[in-house]
Design a binder for these strands. Structure first.
Lengths: 227, 227
DNA sequence: CGCGTTATTTTGATTAGTCAAAATAAATCT
DNA sequence: AGATTTATTTTGACTAATCAAAATAACGCG
Protein backbone atom coordinates (compact mmCIF):
# COMPACT_ATOMS: atom_id res chain seq x y z
CA UNK A 1 0.00 0.00 0.00
CA UNK A 2 2.42 2.69 1.17
CA UNK A 3 5.15 3.23 -1.44
CA UNK A 4 7.65 5.38 0.40
CA UNK A 5 10.69 4.71 -1.72
CA UNK A 6 10.42 3.85 -5.39
CA UNK A 7 10.54 0.08 -5.93
CA UNK A 8 10.85 -0.68 -2.20
CA UNK A 9 13.87 -2.89 -1.52
CA UNK A 10 13.63 -5.07 1.59
CA UNK A 11 15.89 -4.03 4.42
CA UNK A 12 17.93 -7.16 3.78
CA UNK A 13 18.48 -6.10 0.18
CA UNK A 14 19.38 -2.61 1.36
CA UNK A 15 21.95 -4.04 3.77
CA UNK A 16 23.60 -6.14 1.08
CA UNK A 17 23.83 -3.20 -1.32
CA UNK A 18 25.13 -0.84 1.33
CA UNK A 19 27.78 -3.29 2.44
CA UNK A 20 28.91 -3.99 -1.12
CA UNK A 21 29.39 -0.29 -1.64
CA UNK A 22 31.28 0.20 1.62
CA UNK A 23 33.52 -2.82 1.03
CA UNK A 24 34.41 -1.77 -2.48
CA UNK A 25 35.69 1.42 -0.85
CA UNK A 26 33.39 3.54 -3.03
CA UNK A 27 35.47 2.22 -5.91
CA UNK A 28 34.79 -0.48 -8.43
CA UNK A 29 36.87 -3.42 -7.20
CA UNK A 30 35.01 -6.69 -6.85
CA UNK A 31 33.86 -7.59 -3.35
CA UNK A 32 34.46 -11.20 -2.35
CA UNK A 33 31.67 -13.37 -1.01
CA UNK A 34 33.70 -14.07 2.08
CA UNK A 35 34.10 -10.41 2.98
CA UNK A 36 30.48 -9.69 2.21
CA UNK A 37 29.28 -12.62 4.29
CA UNK A 38 31.47 -11.57 7.22
CA UNK A 39 30.26 -7.98 7.06
CA UNK A 40 26.64 -9.09 7.06
CA UNK A 41 27.17 -11.83 9.63
CA UNK A 42 25.82 -14.66 7.46
CA UNK A 43 27.48 -17.81 6.13
CA UNK A 44 29.10 -17.53 2.68
CA UNK A 45 26.47 -19.70 1.00
CA UNK A 46 23.78 -17.25 2.03
CA UNK A 47 25.69 -14.38 0.48
CA UNK A 48 26.08 -16.28 -2.78
CA UNK A 49 22.36 -17.05 -2.93
CA UNK A 50 21.38 -13.48 -2.18
CA UNK A 51 23.86 -11.99 -4.62
CA UNK A 52 22.50 -14.17 -7.40
CA UNK A 53 19.03 -12.86 -6.63
CA UNK A 54 20.28 -9.27 -6.61
CA UNK A 55 21.97 -9.87 -9.96
CA UNK A 56 18.68 -11.17 -11.37
CA UNK A 57 17.08 -7.90 -10.27
CA UNK A 58 19.77 -5.86 -11.97
CA UNK A 59 21.13 -4.37 -8.75
CA UNK A 60 24.58 -5.98 -8.91
CA UNK A 61 26.82 -7.73 -11.39
CA UNK A 62 28.15 -11.06 -10.22
CA UNK A 63 31.26 -12.71 -11.62
CA UNK A 64 30.86 -16.20 -10.15
CA UNK A 65 33.86 -17.30 -8.12
CA UNK A 66 35.41 -13.81 -8.29
CA UNK A 67 33.10 -11.32 -6.68
CA UNK A 68 30.32 -8.80 -6.96
CA UNK A 69 29.90 -5.09 -7.52
CA UNK A 70 27.05 -2.63 -7.91
CA UNK A 71 25.21 -1.61 -11.06
CA UNK A 72 24.29 2.05 -11.43
CA UNK A 73 20.87 1.26 -9.98
CA UNK A 74 22.33 -0.74 -7.09
CA UNK A 75 24.69 2.11 -6.32
CA UNK A 76 21.79 4.56 -6.33
CA UNK A 77 19.93 2.46 -3.75
CA UNK A 78 23.08 1.95 -1.64
CA UNK A 79 23.83 5.66 -1.56
CA UNK A 80 20.28 6.28 -0.41
CA UNK A 81 20.76 3.91 2.51
CA UNK A 82 24.07 5.52 3.42
CA UNK A 83 22.52 8.96 3.24
CA UNK A 84 19.78 7.87 5.63
CA UNK A 85 22.28 6.23 7.95
CA UNK A 86 24.53 9.24 8.19
CA UNK A 87 21.76 11.80 8.55
CA UNK A 88 20.26 9.73 11.34
CA UNK A 89 23.62 9.52 13.12
CA UNK A 90 24.00 13.27 12.81
CA UNK A 91 20.54 13.78 14.26
CA UNK A 92 21.19 11.43 17.17
CA UNK A 93 24.38 13.28 18.09
CA UNK A 94 23.45 16.87 17.30
CA UNK A 95 19.84 16.93 18.40
CA UNK A 96 19.40 14.07 20.86
CA UNK A 97 22.90 14.64 22.29
CA UNK A 98 23.79 10.99 22.21
CA UNK A 99 27.37 9.82 22.44
CA UNK A 100 28.97 9.55 19.00
CA UNK A 101 30.48 6.19 19.95
CA UNK A 102 27.06 4.57 20.31
CA UNK A 103 24.93 5.94 17.49
CA UNK A 104 26.10 3.60 14.75
CA UNK A 105 24.03 0.64 15.90
CA UNK A 106 20.97 2.84 16.42
CA UNK A 107 21.21 4.27 12.91
CA UNK A 108 21.58 0.75 11.54
CA UNK A 109 18.09 0.06 12.83
CA UNK A 110 16.38 3.26 11.81
CA UNK A 111 17.88 3.60 8.33
CA UNK A 112 15.43 1.08 6.92
CA UNK A 113 12.32 2.56 8.47
CA UNK A 114 12.57 6.27 7.80
CA UNK A 115 10.65 7.71 4.86
CA UNK A 116 11.97 10.24 2.39
CA UNK A 117 9.55 12.83 3.74
CA UNK A 118 10.86 12.53 7.29
CA UNK A 119 14.43 12.35 6.07
CA UNK A 120 14.11 15.62 4.17
CA UNK A 121 12.73 17.34 7.26
CA UNK A 122 15.59 15.99 9.31
CA UNK A 123 18.08 17.15 6.68
CA UNK A 124 16.62 20.65 6.83
CA UNK A 125 16.54 20.67 10.64
CA UNK A 126 20.24 19.76 10.70
CA UNK A 127 21.10 22.44 8.14
CA UNK A 128 21.92 20.07 5.26
CA UNK A 129 25.15 18.78 6.80
CA UNK A 130 27.93 17.57 4.47
CA UNK A 131 29.35 15.03 6.91
CA UNK A 132 28.16 12.96 9.87
CA UNK A 133 29.73 13.09 13.38
CA UNK A 134 32.40 10.56 12.33
CA UNK A 135 33.36 12.87 9.48
CA UNK A 136 31.94 10.51 6.84
CA UNK A 137 30.46 12.44 3.90
CA UNK A 138 26.65 12.42 3.54
CA UNK A 139 25.49 11.75 -0.05
CA UNK A 140 22.98 14.26 -1.38
CA UNK A 141 19.41 13.32 -2.18
CA UNK A 142 20.60 12.79 -5.75
CA UNK A 143 23.44 10.46 -4.89
CA UNK A 144 26.37 12.83 -5.14
CA UNK A 145 29.18 12.37 -2.61
CA UNK A 146 32.01 14.75 -1.83
CA UNK A 147 34.72 12.47 -3.12
CA UNK A 148 37.85 13.64 -1.40
CA UNK A 149 40.97 11.64 -0.81
CA UNK A 150 42.56 12.12 2.58
CA UNK A 151 45.83 11.11 4.16
CA UNK A 152 45.80 9.01 7.34
CA UNK A 153 47.92 9.18 10.49
CA UNK A 154 49.79 6.23 9.01
CA UNK A 155 50.66 7.99 5.77
CA UNK A 156 50.82 11.73 6.40
CA UNK A 157 53.87 13.97 6.73
CA UNK A 158 55.58 14.28 10.12
CA UNK A 159 55.47 17.43 12.22
CA UNK A 160 52.97 19.15 9.92
CA UNK A 161 49.81 20.57 11.56
CA UNK A 162 46.83 18.37 10.72
CA UNK A 163 43.13 18.32 11.35
CA UNK A 164 41.26 15.04 11.84
CA UNK A 165 38.51 14.85 9.23
CA UNK A 166 37.21 11.37 9.66
CA UNK A 167 37.42 8.09 11.56
CA UNK A 168 36.95 5.11 9.26
CA UNK A 169 36.23 2.45 11.84
CA UNK A 170 32.79 1.97 13.29
CA UNK A 171 33.59 -0.49 16.07
CA UNK A 172 32.56 0.86 19.49
CA UNK A 173 35.91 -0.21 20.98
CA UNK A 174 37.88 1.80 18.47
CA UNK A 175 35.63 4.83 18.73
CA UNK A 176 35.84 4.62 22.51
CA UNK A 177 39.61 4.58 22.32
CA UNK A 178 39.66 7.51 19.87
CA UNK A 179 37.31 9.45 22.14
CA UNK A 180 39.44 8.80 25.22
CA UNK A 181 42.58 9.85 23.40
CA UNK A 182 41.03 13.06 22.13
CA UNK A 183 41.17 11.86 18.53
CA UNK A 184 37.83 13.30 17.37
CA UNK A 185 37.04 14.76 13.96
CA UNK A 186 37.97 18.44 13.97
CA UNK A 187 40.83 18.09 16.44
CA UNK A 188 44.15 19.68 15.57
CA UNK A 189 47.38 17.68 15.99
CA UNK A 190 50.66 16.56 14.43
CA UNK A 191 52.50 13.28 14.05
CA UNK A 192 55.81 13.52 15.88
CA UNK A 193 57.13 10.03 15.29
CA UNK A 194 56.44 7.03 13.10
CA UNK A 195 58.31 3.78 13.60
CA UNK A 196 57.36 1.43 10.79
CA UNK A 197 59.49 -1.40 12.13
CA UNK A 198 57.71 -1.34 15.48
CA UNK A 199 54.40 -0.41 13.86
CA UNK A 200 53.92 2.60 16.14
CA UNK A 201 52.76 6.15 15.51
CA UNK A 202 53.02 8.97 18.04
CA UNK A 203 50.81 12.04 17.79
CA UNK A 204 50.75 15.21 19.86
CA UNK A 205 48.06 17.85 20.38
CA UNK A 206 49.85 21.17 20.74
CA UNK A 207 52.55 20.83 23.41
CA UNK A 208 50.42 18.42 25.39
CA UNK A 209 50.91 14.76 26.25
CA UNK A 210 51.59 12.40 23.35
CA UNK A 211 49.37 9.51 22.29
CA UNK A 212 50.86 6.38 20.76
CA UNK A 213 48.84 4.05 18.59
CA UNK A 214 49.44 1.11 16.26
CA UNK A 215 49.94 1.59 12.57
CA UNK A 216 46.68 -0.19 11.69
CA UNK A 217 44.69 2.07 14.00
CA UNK A 218 46.51 5.13 12.66
CA UNK A 219 45.41 4.12 9.17
CA UNK A 220 41.81 4.48 10.25
CA UNK A 221 42.13 8.14 11.12
CA UNK A 222 41.90 10.45 8.13
CA UNK A 223 43.52 13.87 8.28
CA UNK A 224 43.86 17.00 6.17
CA UNK A 225 46.77 19.47 6.26
CA UNK A 226 45.96 22.54 8.35
CA UNK A 227 46.95 26.22 7.79
CA UNK B 1 23.15 -9.84 18.70
CA UNK B 2 21.77 -6.46 19.70
CA UNK B 3 19.08 -6.84 22.35
CA UNK B 4 17.34 -3.51 22.35
CA UNK B 5 14.07 -4.54 23.91
CA UNK B 6 13.81 -7.47 26.27
CA UNK B 7 12.68 -10.62 24.45
CA UNK B 8 12.50 -8.89 21.05
CA UNK B 9 9.13 -9.42 19.41
CA UNK B 10 9.10 -9.25 15.60
CA UNK B 11 7.39 -6.21 14.17
CA UNK B 12 4.59 -8.48 12.95
CA UNK B 13 4.04 -9.71 16.47
CA UNK B 14 4.12 -6.14 17.74
CA UNK B 15 1.49 -5.13 15.18
CA UNK B 16 -0.83 -7.95 16.18
CA UNK B 17 -0.55 -7.14 19.87
CA UNK B 18 -1.01 -3.42 19.32
CA UNK B 19 -4.07 -3.96 17.17
CA UNK B 20 -5.63 -6.39 19.66
CA UNK B 21 -5.24 -3.78 22.37
CA UNK B 22 -6.68 -0.97 20.24
CA UNK B 23 -9.62 -3.07 19.07
CA UNK B 24 -10.51 -4.20 22.56
CA UNK B 25 -10.84 -0.48 23.31
CA UNK B 26 -8.30 -0.74 26.12
CA UNK B 27 -10.83 -3.01 27.80
CA UNK B 28 -11.06 -6.75 28.06
CA UNK B 29 -13.70 -7.68 25.49
CA UNK B 30 -12.65 -10.40 23.07
CA UNK B 31 -11.48 -9.24 19.65
CA UNK B 32 -12.86 -11.23 16.72
CA UNK B 33 -10.57 -12.75 14.11
CA UNK B 34 -12.46 -10.90 11.41
CA UNK B 35 -11.87 -7.49 12.97
CA UNK B 36 -8.26 -8.28 13.70
CA UNK B 37 -7.62 -9.54 10.19
CA UNK B 38 -9.25 -6.44 8.69
CA UNK B 39 -7.23 -4.11 10.88
CA UNK B 40 -3.99 -5.84 9.90
CA UNK B 41 -4.95 -6.23 6.27
CA UNK B 42 -4.53 -10.00 6.16
CA UNK B 43 -7.02 -12.81 5.44
CA UNK B 44 -8.81 -14.29 8.46
CA UNK B 45 -6.95 -17.58 8.26
CA UNK B 46 -3.66 -15.77 8.70
CA UNK B 47 -4.93 -14.06 11.83
CA UNK B 48 -6.04 -17.38 13.28
CA UNK B 49 -2.65 -18.95 12.63
CA UNK B 50 -0.77 -16.03 14.09
CA UNK B 51 -3.00 -15.78 17.15
CA UNK B 52 -2.43 -19.45 17.90
CA UNK B 53 1.30 -18.82 17.79
CA UNK B 54 0.95 -15.80 20.07
CA UNK B 55 -1.10 -17.88 22.49
CA UNK B 56 1.65 -20.51 22.54
CA UNK B 57 4.09 -17.75 23.52
CA UNK B 58 1.84 -16.59 26.33
CA UNK B 59 1.15 -13.18 24.82
CA UNK B 60 -2.59 -13.66 24.24
CA UNK B 61 -5.39 -15.94 25.34
CA UNK B 62 -7.38 -17.42 22.49
CA UNK B 63 -10.90 -18.75 22.89
CA UNK B 64 -11.25 -20.62 19.58
CA UNK B 65 -14.26 -19.49 17.55
CA UNK B 66 -14.88 -16.57 19.94
CA UNK B 67 -11.91 -14.29 19.97
CA UNK B 68 -8.67 -13.20 21.49
CA UNK B 69 -7.38 -10.84 24.13
CA UNK B 70 -4.08 -9.93 25.71
CA UNK B 71 -2.32 -11.51 28.65
CA UNK B 72 -0.56 -9.18 31.09
CA UNK B 73 2.67 -9.75 29.18
CA UNK B 74 1.03 -9.13 25.80
CA UNK B 75 -0.49 -5.95 27.12
CA UNK B 76 2.89 -4.80 28.36
CA UNK B 77 4.38 -5.27 24.90
CA UNK B 78 1.40 -3.61 23.18
CA UNK B 79 1.59 -0.58 25.44
CA UNK B 80 5.26 -0.27 24.61
CA UNK B 81 4.47 -0.19 20.91
CA UNK B 82 1.73 2.38 21.44
CA UNK B 83 4.05 4.50 23.55
CA UNK B 84 6.64 4.46 20.78
CA UNK B 85 4.01 5.24 18.14
CA UNK B 86 2.60 8.23 19.97
CA UNK B 87 5.91 9.69 21.01
CA UNK B 88 7.11 9.46 17.43
CA UNK B 89 3.96 11.18 16.18
CA UNK B 90 4.48 13.92 18.72
CA UNK B 91 8.07 14.35 17.62
CA UNK B 92 7.11 14.49 13.94
CA UNK B 93 4.56 17.23 14.60
CA UNK B 94 6.26 19.24 17.33
CA UNK B 95 9.86 19.08 16.19
CA UNK B 96 9.80 18.30 12.48
CA UNK B 97 6.70 20.45 11.99
CA UNK B 98 4.93 17.85 9.93
CA UNK B 99 1.20 17.99 9.33
CA UNK B 100 -0.70 16.11 12.03
CA UNK B 101 -2.90 14.53 9.36
CA UNK B 102 0.04 12.67 7.78
CA UNK B 103 2.19 11.47 10.66
CA UNK B 104 0.25 8.30 11.51
CA UNK B 105 1.64 6.25 8.61
CA UNK B 106 5.17 7.49 9.30
CA UNK B 107 5.00 6.51 12.94
CA UNK B 108 3.66 3.10 11.93
CA UNK B 109 7.00 2.49 10.19
CA UNK B 110 9.33 3.90 12.81
CA UNK B 111 7.66 2.43 15.88
CA UNK B 112 9.29 -0.96 15.26
CA UNK B 113 12.79 0.35 14.66
CA UNK B 114 13.39 2.82 17.48
CA UNK B 115 15.36 1.66 20.51
CA UNK B 116 14.49 2.40 24.11
CA UNK B 117 17.57 4.59 24.41
CA UNK B 118 16.53 6.83 21.54
CA UNK B 119 12.94 6.81 22.70
CA UNK B 120 13.87 8.06 26.15
CA UNK B 121 15.89 10.90 24.65
CA UNK B 122 12.96 11.80 22.45
CA UNK B 123 10.63 11.70 25.42
CA UNK B 124 12.89 14.09 27.32
CA UNK B 125 13.29 16.39 24.31
CA UNK B 126 9.51 16.62 24.03
CA UNK B 127 9.10 17.32 27.73
CA UNK B 128 7.49 13.98 28.65
CA UNK B 129 4.18 14.72 26.92
CA UNK B 130 1.01 13.07 28.25
CA UNK B 131 -0.76 12.97 24.90
CA UNK B 132 0.13 12.93 21.21
CA UNK B 133 -1.07 15.53 18.66
CA UNK B 134 -4.34 13.63 18.17
CA UNK B 135 -4.97 13.86 21.89
CA UNK B 136 -4.36 10.14 22.43
CA UNK B 137 -2.72 9.45 25.81
CA UNK B 138 0.92 8.29 25.77
CA UNK B 139 1.58 5.34 28.09
CA UNK B 140 4.52 5.81 30.46
CA UNK B 141 7.68 3.74 30.21
CA UNK B 142 6.12 1.46 32.80
CA UNK B 143 2.87 0.92 30.94
CA UNK B 144 0.60 3.26 32.83
CA UNK B 145 -2.03 5.12 30.81
CA UNK B 146 -4.14 8.05 31.90
CA UNK B 147 -7.37 6.14 31.77
CA UNK B 148 -10.00 8.80 31.42
CA UNK B 149 -13.43 8.36 29.95
CA UNK B 150 -14.54 11.17 27.72
CA UNK B 151 -17.84 12.15 26.13
CA UNK B 152 -18.04 12.55 22.36
CA UNK B 153 -19.81 15.13 20.21
CA UNK B 154 -22.43 12.44 19.69
CA UNK B 155 -23.11 11.94 23.37
CA UNK B 156 -22.31 15.16 25.21
CA UNK B 157 -24.74 17.73 26.65
CA UNK B 158 -26.06 20.49 24.34
CA UNK B 159 -25.02 24.14 24.67
CA UNK B 160 -22.38 23.39 27.29
CA UNK B 161 -18.86 24.74 26.62
CA UNK B 162 -16.54 21.89 25.62
CA UNK B 163 -12.92 21.37 24.79
CA UNK B 164 -11.85 18.79 22.20
CA UNK B 165 -9.46 16.38 23.86
CA UNK B 166 -8.97 13.73 21.25
CA UNK B 167 -9.82 12.53 17.75
CA UNK B 168 -10.28 8.77 17.66
CA UNK B 169 -10.01 8.19 13.92
CA UNK B 170 -6.67 7.89 12.21
CA UNK B 171 -7.81 7.98 8.57
CA UNK B 172 -6.20 10.86 6.67
CA UNK B 173 -9.57 11.81 5.11
CA UNK B 174 -11.20 12.22 8.48
CA UNK B 175 -8.28 14.10 9.97
CA UNK B 176 -8.21 16.34 6.91
CA UNK B 177 -11.89 17.10 7.37
CA UNK B 178 -11.44 17.78 11.08
CA UNK B 179 -8.52 20.05 10.35
CA UNK B 180 -10.49 21.99 7.73
CA UNK B 181 -13.40 22.40 10.07
CA UNK B 182 -11.25 23.65 12.92
CA UNK B 183 -11.98 20.56 15.00
CA UNK B 184 -8.49 20.10 16.49
CA UNK B 185 -7.67 18.90 19.99
CA UNK B 186 -7.67 21.85 22.34
CA UNK B 187 -10.33 23.83 20.47
CA UNK B 188 -13.26 25.27 22.42
CA UNK B 189 -16.82 24.78 21.14
CA UNK B 190 -20.38 23.76 21.98
CA UNK B 191 -22.96 21.49 20.38
CA UNK B 192 -25.99 23.58 19.41
CA UNK B 193 -28.14 20.92 17.83
CA UNK B 194 -28.34 17.16 17.60
CA UNK B 195 -30.90 15.48 15.35
CA UNK B 196 -30.77 11.75 16.00
CA UNK B 197 -33.37 10.98 13.35
CA UNK B 198 -31.38 12.71 10.62
CA UNK B 199 -28.08 11.61 12.18
CA UNK B 200 -26.74 15.17 12.25
CA UNK B 201 -24.82 17.16 14.83
CA UNK B 202 -24.20 20.89 14.66
CA UNK B 203 -21.35 22.51 16.54
CA UNK B 204 -20.37 26.15 16.90
CA UNK B 205 -17.12 27.80 17.93
CA UNK B 206 -18.05 30.93 19.86
CA UNK B 207 -20.59 32.96 17.86
CA UNK B 208 -18.88 31.90 14.60
CA UNK B 209 -20.17 29.84 11.71
CA UNK B 210 -21.59 26.41 12.53
CA UNK B 211 -20.20 23.10 11.35
CA UNK B 212 -22.50 20.14 10.72
CA UNK B 213 -21.28 16.59 10.78
CA UNK B 214 -22.73 13.08 10.82
CA UNK B 215 -23.39 11.25 14.06
CA UNK B 216 -20.73 8.62 13.35
CA UNK B 217 -18.10 11.28 12.77
CA UNK B 218 -19.23 13.15 15.87
CA UNK B 219 -18.68 9.96 17.85
CA UNK B 220 -15.01 10.05 16.93
CA UNK B 221 -14.41 13.40 18.56
CA UNK B 222 -13.87 13.20 22.30
CA UNK B 223 -14.62 16.22 24.44
CA UNK B 224 -14.36 17.32 28.06
CA UNK B 225 -16.59 19.89 29.77
CA UNK B 226 -14.90 23.30 29.99
CA UNK B 227 -15.01 25.95 32.80
C1' DC C 1 52.62 -30.11 -13.30
C1' DG C 2 50.00 -32.13 -9.72
C1' DC C 3 48.28 -31.92 -5.03
C1' DG C 4 46.57 -29.72 -1.12
C1' DT C 5 44.52 -25.52 0.80
C1' DT C 6 41.03 -22.18 0.66
C1' DA C 7 37.02 -19.87 -1.12
C1' DT C 8 32.72 -20.35 -3.42
C1' DT C 9 28.71 -22.56 -4.95
C1' DT C 10 25.16 -26.00 -4.63
C1' DT C 11 21.82 -28.79 -2.31
C1' DG C 12 18.43 -29.81 1.00
C1' DA C 13 16.14 -28.17 5.14
C1' DT C 14 14.17 -24.71 8.23
C1' DT C 15 11.50 -20.59 9.97
C1' DA C 16 8.24 -16.66 9.78
C1' DG C 17 4.57 -14.95 7.60
C1' DT C 18 1.38 -15.11 4.21
C1' DC C 19 -2.82 -16.62 0.80
C1' DA C 20 -6.54 -19.57 -1.41
C1' DA C 21 -9.85 -22.54 -0.75
C1' DA C 22 -12.08 -26.37 1.67
C1' DA C 23 -14.03 -27.86 6.15
C1' DT C 24 -16.38 -26.83 10.25
C1' DA C 25 -18.83 -24.50 13.87
C1' DA C 26 -21.93 -20.91 15.46
C1' DA C 27 -25.70 -17.86 14.72
C1' DT C 28 -29.96 -16.63 12.56
C1' DC C 29 -34.31 -17.13 10.54
C1' DT C 30 -38.11 -18.99 9.37
C1' DA D 1 -35.98 -27.88 14.93
C1' DG D 2 -33.89 -27.68 10.48
C1' DA D 3 -31.81 -25.00 6.85
C1' DT D 4 -29.11 -21.24 5.51
C1' DT D 5 -25.90 -17.63 6.25
C1' DT D 6 -21.69 -16.05 8.30
C1' DA D 7 -17.37 -16.45 10.77
C1' DT D 8 -13.53 -19.23 11.91
C1' DT D 9 -10.30 -22.81 11.43
C1' DT D 10 -7.68 -26.06 8.81
C1' DT D 11 -4.94 -27.62 5.01
C1' DG D 12 -1.62 -27.23 1.49
C1' DA D 13 1.29 -24.26 -0.91
C1' DC D 14 4.35 -20.27 -1.53
C1' DT D 15 8.20 -16.58 -0.70
C1' DA D 16 12.21 -14.48 1.56
C1' DA D 17 16.02 -15.34 4.14
C1' DT D 18 18.67 -18.21 6.39
C1' DC D 19 22.08 -22.46 7.83
C1' DA D 20 24.76 -26.95 7.50
C1' DA D 21 27.28 -29.64 4.92
C1' DA D 22 28.72 -31.61 0.49
C1' DA D 23 30.59 -30.52 -4.15
C1' DT D 24 33.40 -27.79 -7.00
C1' DA D 25 36.65 -24.42 -8.69
C1' DA D 26 40.72 -21.51 -8.27
C1' DC D 27 45.15 -20.68 -6.14
C1' DG D 28 49.66 -21.61 -4.65
C1' DC D 29 53.62 -24.21 -3.69
C1' DG D 30 57.12 -27.59 -4.05
Amino acid sequence: MTHYRSAMASSTVEDYLKQILLLSAAGDELVSMGDLATALDVVPGTATTMVKALAAEGLVTHRPRYGVNLTAEGRRVALGVIRRHRLIETFLVNVLKMDWTEVHAEAELLEHAISDTVLDRLDALLGHPAADPHGDPIPTRHGKVDAQVYATLATCLLEKPLRIVRIVDQSPQFLEFAEQSGLRPGELLRVTDRNLAAGLVTVRKGPARAVTLGLAAAGHILVAPER
